[in-house]
Amino acid sequence: MGLLSKKDTRLILDPLADDNPITIQVLGICSALAITAQLKPSIVMAVSVIFVLGLGNVVISLMRNIIPSKIRIIVQLIVVATLVIIVDQVLKAFAYELSKELSVFIGLIITNCIIMGRFEAFALGNGPWKSFLDGVGNALGYGVILIIVGFFRELLGSGTLFGFKVLGDSVEKTGLYAIGYENNGFMVLPPMALIVVGIIIWVQRSRNSALIEEN
């Protein structure tokens, strides 16, 4: 680890578990839930957020001394919007079907609270390299949850992963379906995303009791 000091590694690794943006900081839930019915859009979304947050953090960090604090929200929004437009145009050019599937949710990365949250909390007070690591780390933490939720919802809901029928064919009754297994159609509905995230939070907090809220 010549490139990364111990502190730098923590910047990346902490958001993956004990400081996770979704389950602990409660940021960026909006777009996290709506696109996780399948694994593929979840991964595309995760990659897009890694790109936007990593680069955005660097840009904001470079400009942190020249942004007047009164208009910083608008400046931040413009920076994010520009990066999101790049993502959107790239997706439209190379993965048109997928960009149709994700529809408005790519645009909604702009108002993803993780991004504004990290700009405000980290990039405005730290150098570009650290901000980059922090951005990538938090976006990875976000992506991990997205991929877990997408994995379970697609596997249990449609019996597929990336569109491949991993559990056998539900029409011809092969594989698991031969012994009476049925897809849980409920998993692909929007409400189940909330409940799956709820369960992830439950599991995480049972394993680490320091995270339990007082209430």
Partner: peptide
């Protein structure tokens, strides 16, 4: 707040699950 929610679910977790149930209702 006056209910006996399992400790790890308190706060955020239970709110997620309630929202999910409400969403099912709204469907």
């Amino acid at each position: 707040r006056y209910s006996n929610v399992p400790a790890p679910l308190r706060g955020l977790g239970i709110t997620f699950i309630i929202t999910g149930l409400m969403a099912i209702g709204f469907m």
